[in-house]
Amino acid sequence: MTTIIKNRQAVADDYTLLTLAEGDAADTVALPAGPLLVPLAVWQARQAELQSRGTLVGVWLAAGEGPEAIAGDLAALPVVGVHFPKFVDGRGYSTARLLRERYAYQGEIRALGDVLHDQLFLMARCGFDAFALKEGKDVAKAVAAFETFKNPYQAAVDQPQPLFRRRAA
């Protein structure tokens, strides 16, 4: 079983991440048993089937897919994954902020793909609360990354007041 970081702790991942291989079709790909994290295309093609399975189902968004595609379904989704194809691709940060701020999503937002420990603090500030690190990375070292900064200056999802307002209060 894979280990992820959730709420700043290393935990076992209950979800199976479903990906579409070359030639796989969203409407015919085999669905493994148990909790699933499926690509947006599979969710859109098989939503009724996925919801009737009786197991947890989440959706993951590719870098070019925005949260507006699942806005109406967020209440039914316990987890939304956001895929980072490369660590330098920052679109996922905006996706997490939109999910939290515009759509008031309260479920788990999980960073997937090329996720490195030095990104975790900023990802958490944008609304991520779970992280599937890039394969081969040290989870224990990554958990320690959350303690790098104690008092961020800027306002963000995790702290809506900037430091100068917190100090004035």
Rank of each mutant, 00 (worst) to 15 (best):
A26T: 09
A26N: 06
A26S: 14
A26I: 11
D27A: 15
T28V: 13
V29K: 04
V29R: 08
A30C: 02
L31G: 12
L31H: 12
P32E: 11
P32A: 08
A33P: 00
G34D: 11
P35I: 01
L36E: 09
L36M: 09
L37R: 03
V38T: 02
V38D: 12
V38M: 10
L40G: 10
L40I: 07
A41T: 15
V42C: 11
V42E: 12
W43K: 04
W43M: 13
W43D: 13
Q44E: 15
Q44D: 14
A45S: 14
A45N: 12
A48W: 00
E49K: 00
E49N: 01
Q51H: 13
S52E: 15
R53M: 14
G54Q: 10
T55L: 00
T55N: 15
T55R: 07
L56K: 14
L56N: 14
V57H: 09
V57T: 15
G58M: 07
V59N: 00
W60F: 14
L61K: 03
A63S: 15
G66A: 06
P67L: 06
P67W: 01
A69G: 05
I70N: 01
I70L: 08
A71E: 08
G72L: 06
D73C: 04
P78R: 01
P78D: 14
V79S: 03
V79W: 03
V79N: 04
G81Q: 06
G81S: 09
G81N: 04
V82D: 06
K86G: 00
V88N: 15
D89A: 09
R91S: 12
G92F: 09
Y93N: 01
T95I: 14
A96R: 05
A96L: 05
R97A: 13
L99R: 02
R100N: 02
R100T: 05
R100A: 02
Y103M: 01
Q106H: 13
G107C: 08
E108H: 04
R110P: 14
A111N: 03
A111D: 08
A111Y: 01
A111R: 03
L112S: 08
L112N: 07
G113L: 07
D114L: 00
D114K: 01
V115H: 01
V115L: 10
L116R: 02
L116Y: 10
L116S: 03
